[in-house]
Design a protein around this nucleic acid. Structure first.
Lengths: 135, 135
DNA sequence: CACTTGCATTGATGACTGTCGATGCAAGAT
DNA sequence: ATCTTGCATCGACAGTCATCAATGCAAGTG
């Protein structure tokens, strides 16, 4: 339940590896394609809420049966969104008896946060009085 | 060129304000919908590459004429992607003579990075030996 | 003025996505 | 074994999206 499924991310090193930041050097096509899959998984309000419910849960994991009733959506739809989040490497899950529990993969959110963080003390080219503006 | 267009984000306070983190408390529907628009804008490889090209540019801004030839896509398509990034609040632009220049809005990427960052020294509920596993 | 160049907008189209009901499957209960 | 419950998968359908060619518009050039 936790290790089959097409591993969307990384062909080899996966989560921990890769690129410093999107803001410091132009992404190449492969990096961009890989990253886009993760951001696309975050690009839906239902999945964002699911992720935040899972991530903020004391104890670190949530049973699907606690997630589904929080939405005005069918159970297959929630299951589908959870699958996408898992394929993006943002969460993982495990069956335990009758129930399935999900938890956050913090390495992935850490990686995204790092990618979106600009190196401290950047020049920050004073975007206020654009040089030769059309005056 | 820089201030019309439907302001996708914030109804009032916009970028700087809002929520602490997606990882600490469940997002409500409005926050999730708002955030999802920004992540959706990042969920495309072309837009990610555009953003990284703009953000990493020395001088802080890029002319569209420098961006378009870097892709195997038509000029209207690039223009469309730039529009989406701008509507998401990630970049802004200005016409200067014949050319249009784009630059990063670092407040937005900062905000996203913050949202994806978990509070330091979190319990990190030892996901290794799942309690009552199906043994 | 007409002509050219840089970029945005429009309209069309094929591909993808979110959603559902129906179904399948695993595991505990009887 | 049969029934029930929890969740995933399947197939279908409507809505959204990425892309293009055609066109429009702004601004510099002759």
């Amino acid at each position: 339940m936790s290790k089959q499924e097409l591993k969307v991310l990384g062909r080899s090193d996966d989560v921990g590896a890769c690129c410093s930041g999107l803001l410091t050097a132009p992404l190449d096509e492969d990096q961009a394609a890989e990253l886009a899959k993760v951001f696309k998984a975050l690009g839906d309000p239902v999945r964002l809420r699911l992720l935040s419910m899972i991530a903020s849960r004391a104890g670190g994991e949530v049973c699907v049966c606690d997630l589904t009733p929080a939405f005005d959506l069918s159970q297959p739809t929630i299951s589908h969104h959870l699958k996408l989040l898992r394929q993006a490497g943002l969460i993982d899950c495990e069956r335990r008896g009758t129930w399935v529990y999900y938890w956050l993969v913090p390495e992935m959110t850490d990686r995204l946060a790092g990618i979106l963080t600009r190196p401290a003390g950047e020049p920050l080219p004073a975007r206020t009085a654009p040089a030769g503006a059309a005056s």
